[in-house]
Design a protein around this nucleic acid. Structure first.
Lengths: 400, 400
DNA sequence: GAAACTATCGGGAACGATTCCGGTGACTGA
DNA sequence: TCAGTCACCGGAATCGTTCCCGATAGTTTC
């Protein structure tokens, strides 16, 4: 790197202090001192793209190895040298090149999160929760959205693999049929953690809320409030989550020896595409349920609006409880009882588990495919408050 | 790369078809054919981390240059060779290494978005909008959150620079005082686009909604509905946005020759920390306003709850309009009139402008520091519907 | 006083791609 | 037959780091 300006020798050069701001060297072959510094020709070509450690090394008069040591807190460096280097780094506004570092370190400090939709409250909160764990550890987040499209999910996964992320957190789409893309990631030593919409195919940590217990708690709540003709509204049964919630509902009825009617139980995806028609049909029955458990708050909110249209009094003529604690649920009138999901905690837990998997990536005895089950929390509001209507306060989160 | 197995010569080797699945070569020096393929020793050491183009090249029997050409759609390659390579790529499940590519291409196809809070509806929508533009172009998004902390904002910016993102989209924090970090990014040829909370310091494209006009429209709406004693509720005046909205309000009053009272105009950050106390104080005045324009929907929602407590009838005794169209606003009862911000469009516009800046990065004559102003849209709901109360339908977005 | 050790540093090989440059054989046209 | 052109390909430099290995001078140990 440093060449003696007399004999052109490159080895046997040692630095010997400074003179007028320039580093002074000693060549043991010609036994003479010399200095480095840009000459005129070099100064012309100064318009570079960015400062590299090579520049720092040249300016300070050390090798790039030494600069690297200074930058990475190595012990094998003299404190004075380190100081000089760090001062020059400051002066030239050097910024580490993570790309180059990642290439040799084989670690990018990047993790990818794939969700069906970025703007949904649930997923935004989840990413935020994961960020709380990941940011302090120096990880950056690739936020990707699959738009409920299997193809996009695969494309996203491949992009993350190509970007050599250190790990992936994912919730699959409704239409996800295969998991080869995730298996590919795992083959390439990229740990994966699933949440919410999980599967039994890929060997990976999974985080879910207890949908079955949540449904039981919701149903118990309706019964406890004195409702007895219970209905269920949900999507079709191709979604694992839906099945669990439905099962919890049915089992609770059984437990209490309550019989529901077939027409009070609606499980169809039309509830997502054309909710009002389906709901109004149910509510116009002469013999309608006196309380309904909806698979999601979204459906519950639709139901509230339909009830408003038909002038049905919630909670007195009709009790209602949802699932998820959608942000709107506390503000709608009547406010909607629901099972709150610990969204932020799911994100944090997923991130923690992922970090653990990353740390043990090379230990082939390590294997974590356990499913963490977080318990949802019953939130009682006006829609099941049969005795008297209380108004409850809630604080909207800050907005723009 | 390919060495003749007889004479060890490396130049003058040409491939001459296949034999039993192995590539056949011809060495012009020894005038003999030979084949390549893994021998026993090599097979032992097969447990590698990942497939590289070097592996592909070796398997197919071409140079890595040729593999690169096949992968990047170069014209300088025989279609048959290309096909062979692509087949092997498929077979070995080769996945491009973006990190390595980025290093030499000096482009990462990554852009960073810095927002005060990821989980806020406004910002989540914005990121989603930006994603709509960026994903089809092959860009990935680093989603970063500043938590309204100036320090975090700087740290995030530095991390993005170190990651050599191709561009940055940012909305600054409330407490952002300096912009040196953004200037640093620009010096390193990383284009920056600001949105919403903008500044006049950094020379960059900016996207905002017209807060002044929005406020005028909101105020006009109140007047048009027959309200005459108008109040304003907002944060303190250290926020540009707040000033614009306040100015729009005042100018509209002036224009109509309406006089407001000082006590009806509240501009303090206590509205964010302790809203109910401030609002209740105002509403308990004997001589209170008959309509209020709140700087944000959040404040408006607090006001609705306070009015409920005091049994003040909205909209008949008190009219109310907010700003931003917070997701809750359409569901709260009474639903809240507001100025809707085209959130998604802001994200899309910011992304488009950023891409344009990236494309012209090296053209030093190119310079875009224009501010795009998007118009907010008046959404009338029950809170200003003085004549009669209509119920309005709205569709909640899909949730988990 | 030789050997062993320590503190400090430089050289150079990776990492996994892209890309410039030059080479080779085949073909074309005079 | 020979120069010129074209299609195709390989070699090697390069991107900006990290990190292993070896070198050196000074210090300590026996």
């Amino acid at each position: 790197m440093i060449k003696c300006s007399y004999c052109q020798e490159v080895s046997g050069i040692r630095k010997t202090g400074k003179i007028r701001g320039k580093q002074r060297f000693f060549c043991k072959y010609c036994n003479r001192h010399f200095t480095t510094g840009k000459n005129q020709e070099e100064t012309v070509a100064t318009q570079k793209d960015g400062i590299t450690i090579k520049d720092i090394a040249a300016e300070v008069g050390v090798s790039i190895s030494t600069v690297s040591r200074a930058l990475n807190g190595s012990k094998e460096i003299h404190s004075a040298t380190k100081e000089m280097i760090l001062r020059k780094v400051e002066e030239l506004d050097y910024q580490q090149h993570y790309i180059a570092t990642s290439l040799v370190r084989k670690q990018t400090f990047t993790i990818g999160i794939i969700v069906p939709e970025l703007k949904t409250d649930f997923y935004a909160n989840l990413i935020s929760g994961a960020n709380e764990i990941l940011r302090p550890k120096g990880y950056k987040i690739f936020a990707m959205q699959s738009d409920e499209s299997f193809e996009h999910e695969i494309a996203n996964t491949n992009a993350l693999i190509a970007s050599r992320v250190d790990g992936i957190i994912a919730s699959t789409t409704f239409e996800t049929k295969g998991f080869a893309h995730f298996e590919r990631a795992k083959e390439k030593k990229i740990p994966v953690v699933f949440f919410s919409r999980i599967n039994n195919v890929v060997d990976a940590p999974k985080i879910v809320v207890d949908n079955y217990m949540g449904a039981k708690m919701a149903t118990e709540h309706l019964i406890e409030r004195g409702y007895g003709k219970l209905g269920f509204l949900g999507g079709s049964d191709n979604l694992h989550i839906g099945n669990l919630r439905f099962q919890g509902f049915m089992d609770t009825l059984d437990k209490h020896g309550i019989k529901s009617q077939e027409k009070w139980i609606i499980r169809t995806d039309q509830l997502l595409s054309d909710p009002h028609r389906i709901i109004l049909e149910l509510l116009r029955e002469k013999d309608r349920p006196d309380a309904v458990f909806t698979m999601t708050d979204t459906i519950g909110i639709h139901l509230i609006k339909c009830a408003r249209t038909l002038k049905i009094d919630i909670p007195n003529e009709l009790g209602l409880i949802g699932f998820s604690d959608y942000i709107v649920s506390q503000y709608i009138s009547p406010s909607l009882s629901t099972m709150r999901q610990p969204t932020r905690e799911i994100g944090m837990e997923a991130a923690s588990r992922l970090l653990k998997a990353i740390a043990n990536k090379n230990d082939k005895n390590y294997r974590d495919n356990t499913t963490t089950v977080l318990m949802p929390e019953l939130v009682t509001r006006e829609s099941t408050d049969r005795v008297k209507n209380r108004s409850r306060a809630g604080t909207p989160s800050r907005q723009q």
